[in-house]
């Protein structure tokens, strides 16, 4: 850029840089390029404010902070309005649904979430039902097996002598029981 040309150097030292249109051109071009570049970056921000429905989609996964047992999307108090407003702001800034939920959980605790997470101290909430059902099923199976294997001592009481259960067909029994209105 800098030549050893005497006249140019003389010009530079003796006079201030003139603001000709051409000398502005480069900076302006640079600015324009920069703006275009930034504008072209993929942005998750919404073009307008989030709709009520978008806010409610997130709010319906949270609890009202002050009232008891009311969903954030249904509550009509001022506090809940503010919280929904905050959700709208976060969504407008580009937060995803999960990020908004994490944001509130980090600030206010797990109790703002409608569904306790399946990890951490609330893991046992989810695990116990499964364990209980399995245990119940196994126990029931064992009991039933024991009953099945026990000697059928009293089974013959329920049939007339000479007519053991195996000789009487199911259909016969069914019809008899139905007619006698015993079932």
């Amino acid at each position: 850029m800098y030549t050893s040309n005497d006249s140019n150097t003389k010009n530079l030292t003796k006079r201030s840089i003139s603001l000709t249109p051409y000398s502005l051109l480069l900076p302006l071009l640079a600015l324009l390029l920069a703006t275009l570049f930034l504008a072209s970056l993929p942005t998750p921000t919404l073009a307008q404010d989030p709709s009520y429905d978008e806010v409610n989609d997130v709010a319906s996964q949270m609890n009202c902070p002050t009232c008891v047992g009311v969903n954030l999307a249904d509550c009509r108090t001022q506090t809940c309005e503010q919280w929904r407003g905050q959700i709208a702001d976060l969504l407008a800034e580009g937060y995803t649904e999960q990020e908004v939920l994490d944001y509130f959980e980090a600030r206010y605790g797990t109790r703002v979430l409608l569904e306790p997470p399946a990890h951490g101290p609330t893991l046992i909430l989810w695990v116990l039902p499964v364990v209980a059902l399995l245990a119940g099923g196994i126990w029931l199976g064992l009991i039933m097996r024991r009953w099945n294997q026990a000697k059928p001592v009293t089974a013959s009481v329920s049939t007339e002598p000479g007519l053991s259960a195996s000789h009487v067909s199911d259909e016969y029994l069914e019809q008899v029981e139905q007619d006698l209105d015993l079932k």
């Binding site: 797990t110 109790r111 306790p116 909430l125």
Partner: peptide
Amino acid sequence: TGEAIVVGPPF
């Protein structure tokens, strides 16, 4: 745990 939890409908 000292932490308040709400067990909502999803569970």
